[in-house]
Design a protein around this nucleic acid. Structure first.
Length: 476
RNA sequence: CGGCGUGUGGCUCAGCUUGGUAGAGCGCUACGUUCGGGACGUAGAGGCCGCAGGUUCGAAUCCUGUCACGCCGACCA
């Protein structure tokens, strides 16, 4: 990032990454802070981004047979308490509703931190026969978790997400669905958001409260910290037993269903910012950018300039395109377009019109390209595709060059003291060892990747026989 | 929940030590000149200084309390 700094309003990444993040979120006009700590106003630019994520993810869900539903936002305390591990996991961070108007409620209710219990309660009554299975439901909603420390998108007290909840006749089918949805997330991140991810399984310590197995996709941010970007849980029949969700199978036996849940939240917007952003602001992959092309007229008061800009806009109707016809100076508009992460801008002024050309400037590389006006549509299409591909490739390269391998404890500790990124290392499989690593090194296990490698025979930390290769890192 | 910090026009902040007419820059409005990397001039509008007590002839400034927000830790998507 040795580029010239064009705008003072954004702190540079190298100076203070956290401040850079906050500056970008604000200057790109994604959110405003609100009067409630940890709750944010998502502004048009931020919400349009979420809508694009939502739409494309939803299409991918539906292609696998998912149906959307909506559950209540309140959970009676008695219902939340039905699954022991689950309530222990979430109790510290739920918000309680105790009154209706002036009157105390007979039973307090929490605002959903996640809706497993609600889906289970519903499924209990809705499922009788194997013919009622599978249930493959999803809801788009917000949930509330009363976090102590909050950051826009990364950790807010209320956040938007989707939560899928499925019920199946067999353990095998549930496991398949769990993995299938993890793959949907991973493919979505890579193909749409240009974010490469590591797919794997969480250790027992890190898995979801009440789950038998949690799968995760982990992405690496620009500062070398990890971000869990989507999760998929296999509950086995644990919730089914706690809630009594039974069905009569073909063999006339009463059986418990096997369940899964999976979610992706507005947190992914934080990942987009921290994977692709630079010192000039946000950089959006063309496939999710609410505006893909900003046309900026130069000397727009001169005869014919604005008209030409509108004409180009009309010719680019197949893309998400806008003309910045405000009366700011061109330099201002350039900076504005860059801070907002709009993938491409078209500069058009009297000189260009005379020459039958325009200037296209890529947001990701800031490369300026002179384009014949009659080749505009094809050039824009080609360049948007190239930007998308290049962004993924750069992110992949960053992931690769910031993934290290440690064979022994000395190496493990040295890498984390000198570098930021993922470290692949062997692990004995014991929670106590994992806790010691966290305690002493402030490093957590991110996942046990599906693509296992054998780095050594012994645990990188305690030296006992190794069971799994683990990605370790510092996480958001 | 612990540590640190901040509350003064829309925003960023100065003023507070040593009490005495509420300030600057940016933004905003109007008009004009500009326009290829955050242009400029002129004229305007906009504030009971987070809130509540107290001290004082007099409080943005001193004292007490309180609330809110931000950052960093512990916990979590």
């Amino acid at each position: 990032m040795a580029e010239k700094k064009l705008v003072e309003a954004i702190t540079s990444m190298s100076e203070d990454f956290a401040q850079w993040y906050t500056d970008v979120v604000k200057k790109a006009e994604l959110i405003d802070y609100s009067n409630v700590k940890g709750c944010m106003v998502i502004k048009p630019a931020g919400y349009a981004l979420w809508e694009n994520i939502q739409r494309q993810l939803d299409e991918r869900f539906k292609a696998t047979g998912v149906e959307n539903v909506y559950m209540p936002m309140f959970i009676p305390e008695s219902l939340l308490e039905k699954e022991k591990d689950h309530v222990e996991g979430f109790a510290p961070e739920v918000a309680w509703v105790t009154h209706g108007g002036m009157n105390p409620l007979p039973e307090r209710m929490c605002v959903r931190p996640t809706s497993e219990t609600l889906f289970c309660d519903f499924y209990k009554g809705d499922i009788q026969s194997y013919r009622d299975l599978p249930k493959v439901y999803n809801q788009w909603c917000s949930v509330v978790r009363w976090e102590k420390e909050t950051r826009p998108f990364l950790r807010s007290r209320e956040f938007l997400w989707q939560e899928g909840h499925t019920a199946h006749a067999t353990a095998k089918e549930a496991e398949e669905r769990t993995e299938q949805m993890l793959n949907v997330y991973a493919d979505f991140c890579e193909e749409v958001l240009a974010i490469p991810v590591i797919k794997g399984r969480k250790t027992d310590k890190e898995k979801f409260a009440g789950a038998e197995a949690t799968y995760t996709i982990e992405a690496l941010m620009h500062d070398g910290k990890a971000l869990q970007s989507g999760t998929s849980h296999n509950f086995g029949d644990g919730f089914a037993k706690a809630f009594g969700i039974q069905f009569t199978d073909k063999d006339n036996q009463l059986k418990y269903v096997h369940q899964t849940s999976w979610g992706m939240s507005t947190r992914i917007i934080g990942a987009i910012i921290m994977v692709h952003g630079d010192d000039s602001g946000l950089v959006l992959p063309p496939k999710v950018a609410p505006v893909q092309v900003m046309i900026i007229p130069i000397q727009q008061k001169k005869e014919g300039v604005l008209e030409k800009a509108y004409e180009l806009r009309d010719r680019l109707k197949g893309f998400r395109v806008k003309v910045d016809d405000s009366d700011k100076s061109p330099g201002w508009k350039f900076s504005e377009q860059e801070m907002r992460g709009i993938p491409m801008r078209v500069e058009i002024g009297p000189k260009d019109i005379e020459a039958g050309k325009c200037i296209i400037c890529r947001r990701d590389t800031r490369e300026k390209i002179e384009v014949e006006l009659d080749r505009l549509e094809e050039t824009v299409e080609e360049l948007l595709g190239k930007i998308q591909d290049d962004m993924l490739n750069r992110a992949k390269e960053h992931l690769e060059t910031h993934t290290y391998t440690a064979a022994c404890r000395e190496e493990f500790e040295r890498i984390f003291s000198e570098k930021a990124g993922f470290v692949k290392a062997m692990w004995c499989g014991e929670t106590a060892c994992e806790e010691a690593i966290k305690e002493n090194m402030a490093v957590t296990s991110r996942c046990m990747p599906f693509n296992q490698e054998c780095i050594s025979d012994t645990c990188v930390y305690c030296g006992k026989p190794a069971k799994k290769m683990v990605y370790w890192g510092r996480a958001y």
